[in-house]
């Protein structure tokens, strides 16, 4: 048993954190929101060079062939950095939407996305109605039950998000389209990986919000002392940390059941999404409260993570929907723990 990162996994997280720490991500997020995408693409190409876009793509399609654990570790770092873009969509969802068999029509897209030659995004009926950053993508994959439609150059209608760096679009299939028949199970699995990927991203977002709050309350003085000396403030921050610290093991547990392909992997992704979403949201509320009025502005960087945490809480399935799914799974069989039967 080793339910912590291996040294290779830790190295991966550190390398990504160093790369993202060397660029001004808040500035990139602001320009991305305003439609100036040049700086984002520069970082993206650096990430492509690291192999990030192929983390979960099988080696025969040009990827690194790593699993959900490594993916979650990367997405947590990306969430921490605040980098916008169709990250969960490209890294976590796409490899499960496009079969990697050599005769598959989707295979070329998979290879191009893994190699960073194409950027892809997705919309999935019911829970992911808007395609994130579709105007920057080379292909939008529209999914409905077992039908996957690849649309190039679609007509797009912008839908503004609470998080201005989440550039959402309604997609109309007027452009060139290719239809794939995928099995409904794969499309469901792709959605589950999106929910789990989103949970991992939320862990990073929540931690960043807590770090921003911790720094602010250590520097901001009122009544002649740092406000972080007041117990009311301390307890808010302690509660935020508590939620995040118990969300992370659940995300990792859900990664293990995804890795083994356990039948509870959907349930576990739901559990991870609920708890990581709640934890990041609680961190956002706490960070806003302890920042005071400055946190309620676009001048301060806090809003970059605050609005993202809020938006992502209801993206990839709302907490209510995910709770129902966990309930339905428990009604059938409550015996298997999060992580799958191999972790019993």
């Amino acid at each position: 048993m080793k339910f912590t990162r291996t040294s290779q996994q830790q190295d991966m997280a550190t390398a990504l954190r160093d790369l993202l720490g060397s660029v001004d991500v808040p500035a990139i997020a602001r320009s991305w929101a305003a439609g100036e995408t040049g700086d984002w693409w520069k970082v993206w190409h650096d990430l492509v060079d690291m192999g990030l876009t192929g983390v979960a793509v099988p080696e025969q399609a040009g990827g690194l062939g790593l699993g959900p654990v490594e993916l979650a570790i990367c997405l947590e770092q990306l969430g921490y950095s605040g980098l916008p873009g169709p990250i969960v969509e490209s890294l976590a969802v796409l490899p499960h939407l496009l079969p990697d068999t050599s005769e598959s029509e989707g295979r070329p897209w998979l290879e191009q996305v893994a190699a960073g030659q194409s950027l892809a995004t997705v919309a999935i009926a019911e829970h992911v109605p808007y395609a994130l950053d579709a105007d920057q993508a080379d292909v939008v994959l529209l999914c409905e039950s077992d039908r996957v439609t690849a649309v190039e150059d679609p007509r797009l209608l912008r839908q503004e998000s609470f998080d201005p760096a989440r550039r959402l679009f309604t997609v109309e299939t007027t452009g060139a389209t290719v239809r794939f028949q995928n099995d409904a199970a794969s499309v469901r699995e792709a959605f589950d990986r999106g929910a789990l990927g989103c949970a991992a991203q939320l862990l990073g977002i929540g931690r960043r919000l807590l770090d921003l709050a911790t720094r602010h309350v250590s520097e901001r003085h009122q009544f002649g002392r740092p406000i972080g000396e007041f117990q009311a403030v301390k307890h808010h921050l302690a509660n935020a940390l508590l939620e995040l610290e118990f969300a992370r093991p659940l995300v990792h547990g859900a990664c293990l059941s995804a890795t083994s392909g356990a039948s509870c992997s959907g349930r576990d992704a739901s559990a991870a999404k609920i708890v990581a979403g709640d934890a990041a949201y609680a961190a956002a509320r706490t960070a806003l409260q302890v920042h005071g009025a400055i946190g309620y502005t676009t001048e301060h960087d806090l809003h970059l993570w605050l609005t993202k945490a809020t938006a992502l809480r209801s993206a990839w399935g709302t907490p209510t929907w995910h709770r129902r799914r966990v309930a339905d799974a428990l009604a059938l069989d409550p015996s298997v723990p999060v992580g799958g039967p191999e972790t019993m």
């Binding site: 339910f3 912590t4 118990f246 093991p249 999060v338």
Partner: peptide
């Protein structure tokens, strides 16, 4: 879920 999270967090600590 809370009990599962506590179980997993404990195995993380033990690791």
């Amino acid at each position: 879920i809370g009990a599962q999270a506590y179980r997993l967090a404990t195995f993380e600590t033990v690791s």
